[in-house]
Amino acid sequence: MGQLTIILARVLQAVPTIFGIVVVTFLLTRALPGDPAAYFAGASATPESIAEIRVKLGLDQSLPLQFVAYLQDLATGNLGQSISTGQPVATELLRRLPASLELTLFALLLSVAVAIPLGVLAAVKQDTWIDQVCRFIVTAGVSLPTFFTGLLLVYVFYFLLGIAPAPLGRLDMLHIAPPQVTGFLVLDGLIAREWATAWSAFKQLLLPGITLALFTLAPLARMTRAAMLQALASEYLRTARAAGLSSTRVLMVYAFRNAMLPIITTLGMVFSFTLGANVLVEKVFAWPGIGSFAIEALVVSDYAAVQGFVLSMAVLFVLLNLVIDTVYTLIDPRVRIEG
């Protein structure tokens, strides 16, 4: 009951945020330079044909009226139609979202698998050369623009060595997508028992995944180190050590468990900015995610598409925070009592 109320309260809290996002996105898209009507009227359009298209898109109306129309559409769950792809924005996003999520989650998984051990190691060996090396490695990862790392990896592993598959999206051309269950091709491939497809999807995922993971190592590893240091210095750990518990047990069970909270918070933030960084990586790897869709839409001032993209991102982010809060209540009993 208590937990449910907390979650409900969080959802209600998100409502004004989402409204704010709707307003900001609307204004931002209208401030974009260029006239979508002129753009979509195409080469050799006449002023009349541009005016025709403007009416068709509803852009001949005043801003407040456009906003009301937009809200009405939203209320009925209609995100509008992307003028550049001609598809409903919702369909487009749902088709592309799994690609971005698969990439982001895979990258985070990789990153967590490397960053947390590094962070713990750095904390345990605080101020020794190991600490410095860890710090050096993760900082180097975050110091290069993602598109640069991506192209470099393509150059070395695909172009020079020929180990990696061609950077051509989610599947190489030999395979076709397995029946959609999760939308994640690797998982879907496994579910459908099409091992070769799953393997191919995994290989495609590897380079963009590593590119993104390198970029997210630093915040995770740093936070792990800091949180571990704090946990290790706390009273109850000293007590636990004094009580003669083995040091591995102290480390893994007590210290790490307590360090998890800030790590999870950081993970949420990292997730958000990884989705942002996706935009660039998707371009390098021809990854058919929502990031590349957003760039395309932004360049041609495709209002509905940009709005839909940002809105879905925001909702995703709110959902993510909800999940994090829930995980919080599960890990940390104190939160539950407070609620």
């Binding site: 945020t17 974009l32 958000s272 900015f273 942002g276 960084a277 957003a294 993209f309 940002v310």
Partner: peptide, 24 residues
């Protein structure tokens, strides 16, 4: 608080992209 929540809910790079695209 609401204002900051709104900014935070954008994927940050995309927000920067939007602002620069809109403002030049």
């Amino acid at each position: 608080g609401r204002f900051l929540d709104t900014i935070m809910a954008f994927p940050l790079f995309v927000l920067a992209m939007g602002i620069v695209a809109a403002a030049g």
